[in-house]
Design a binder for these strands. Structure first.
Lengths: 326, 326
DNA sequence: TTGTAAGCGTTATCAA
DNA sequence: TTGATAACGCTTACAA
């Protein structure tokens, strides 16, 4: 490892001078600067972030916690975060929490021990522990009043999903509700519920998780219990895919007999047949904005508490009928 | 931030003593040990990894580089890595390389600057840069003779895929070849090619990437150029899904008229309809083994160069015919 | 414009 | 069994 000391020797100056040119701090003669730069170049010197970090109590590290990177919505978020951070010279420590508070606490410890400068969290809204860290935290795809957060317009999304099915003629709708403890899931559920409630169609509600493991059995159960369903508002695209598969398996015509609308717009939607109509959340953008917001609160000392809501949109594909057909 | 000094004061001893109980190093009287532990408890003290890292030139950080976490195969790998590492008390710095050498170099710099202890890389086999780091590197789902690597048995996988289609009666097979610069892709391609070559069936080869963005057009092209194809060996599951969709779109009966076999066994396979038959790569296990291998080479000083090949298996679902039917 | 030296939070050596 | 202290690589007063 080449240190500042060696650079100083090579350039025939003191370490202080090298440090000055490194940080463009204080006065340094043009000549000396060049000499130092030459030495740096020659030795391929790169300052040791660890030493800097120790002195400054800062770092170029950001923590990112997601419930499970294996769930296809999160890689998009993570990628948005990473791309922005990387261009700002920051790097990512990442952890999967499985929505498990113990694990979260472990990461919090790890983050603290590594002088992580800020955290982006897509995990449970149980944020008591996070407050202890005393560094900026931005919630991503999660909402909690005490923290800045970046999320998509769940109310609009829920309404949109319900209205789409209604407009296109579903008369017996099954509404799949996501995890009840997740505010975003609850919000879009409530919004859809409200729309259905104001309509004259028949509808029912089923609970489900967001996860692939439960999706198939949820789908089976749905058609066993409500065989006459002609419209499904799924909790997310994973669940929607499972419903689609099960419907096809039972010989339903889609979208003629049954319309399905998903949520998220994960990449595979367009690979399904029929391709899944869904509510698009701008996941990559959300990640990017969360990172941007975090950078902003790093740069200014006063706490910010911005709530940033990004718009959702309906992506019309093949599991909903064309509106003219109604 | 509470430091070792404060703990020492609280316990009425010197920092050296605290350090000794922290690391269970050297002699320390039972009484004093208890006093120190009490102080630690009381102040919620946690040693600063940064300071340790500076002194020891070590850390609890591992670097992980993947081409693109957005590609559904990599989250499984990453999760396997993370779970194992986490249980060993290590943490992950992660980066997406986009197979871009410049980006890789940036991560290498970042890893070095943070005293990262080892790297797991699923990115290009252009490893010249990695050697410069002088820390253990384990290749994951990539192979290169100079590095330890963990990968799945591509030769068996390629053969299996071809044999499955052959056994089940495909007589006009299109073999989709993945990125030519990737040794694993090339190996499974070659293995499948070899099997087809020894058979008496008609077959053709098309080049494709692994990516979702190219998948649809590849699929279209496939059926435009080779409308009589009755068996497709896809480069991976993404491509297979696109082919499946396109085939369905064109009204083909699956698997009666056309069999499709994927590669990887990403989670969505079972959500498709018909569900995708595929060659299963034990991605999670691979990640875990790579992490294990890395830990091993961290613990012993001499370089290891283990090549670990995990078995693949055929997952029979609905895009291949039952073998009795032939 | 430059250099000396103290300090960031640890660990390890050495002396007591 | 304990405590001073130098060292890890860097930054920043302060002195020159």
């Amino acid at each position: 490892m080449v240190t500042i000391k060696q650079v100083a020797e090579e350039a025939g100056v003191s370490v202080a001078t090298v440090s000055r040119v490194l940080n463009s701090n204080g006065y340094v003669h043009e000549e000396t600067r060049k000499a130092v730069e030459k030495a740096i170049e020659k030795l391929h010197y790169r300052p040791n972030e660890i030493a800097r970090s120790l002195y400054h109590h800062t770092s170029k590290l950001i923590g990112l916690v997601v419930p499970d990177i294996t769930n296809p919505f999160f890689p998009e978020l993570a990628r948005g975060v990473e791309d922005y951070l990387q261009q700002e010279g920051y790097h990512l420590m990442i952890g999967n929490s499985d929505e498990n508070v113990e694990k979260e606490v472990q990461y919090i410890e790890a983050f603290r021990q590594h002088n992580v400068m800020g955290v982006i969290s897509s995990t449970s809204e149980e944020t008591a522990e996070w407050t202890k860290l005393n560094i900026p935290v931005v919630l991503l795809d999660r909402v909690q009043n005490d923290f800045p957060s970046v999320y998509a317009d769940q109310e609009a999304g829920g309404q949109m999903a319900a209205n789409i099915l209604l407009e296109r003629g579903s008369r017996n709708i099954t509404l799949l509700r996501g995890p009840i403890h997740l505010r975003i899931a609850q919000e879009r559920f409530l919004a859809a519920l409200h729309v259905l409630g104001k309509s004259d169609v028949h509808f029912q509600v089923m609970n489900t998780s967001f996860s692939l493991h439960d999706a198939s059995s949820t789908a089976k159960q749905l058609f066993d219990q409500y065989p006459n369903t002609d419209g499904v508002i799924a909790a997310n695209d994973i669940v929607a895919s499972a419903v689609l598969r099960e419907a096809l398996l039972r010989g339903k015509n889609i979208p003629e007999e049954l319309q399905i609308i998903g949520y998220d717009d994960i990449p595979v939607c367009e690979l399904l047949y029929p391709a899944l109509s869904t509510i698009h959340q701008p996941a990559y953008e959300m990640g990017k904005e969360a990172a941007k917001l975090l950078m902003k609160s790093l740069k200014q000392s006063k706490k910010i508490n911005e709530q940033m809501m990004l718009p959702v949109s309906f992506v019309e594909r093949e599991t909903t009928r064309k509106v003219e057909k109604v």
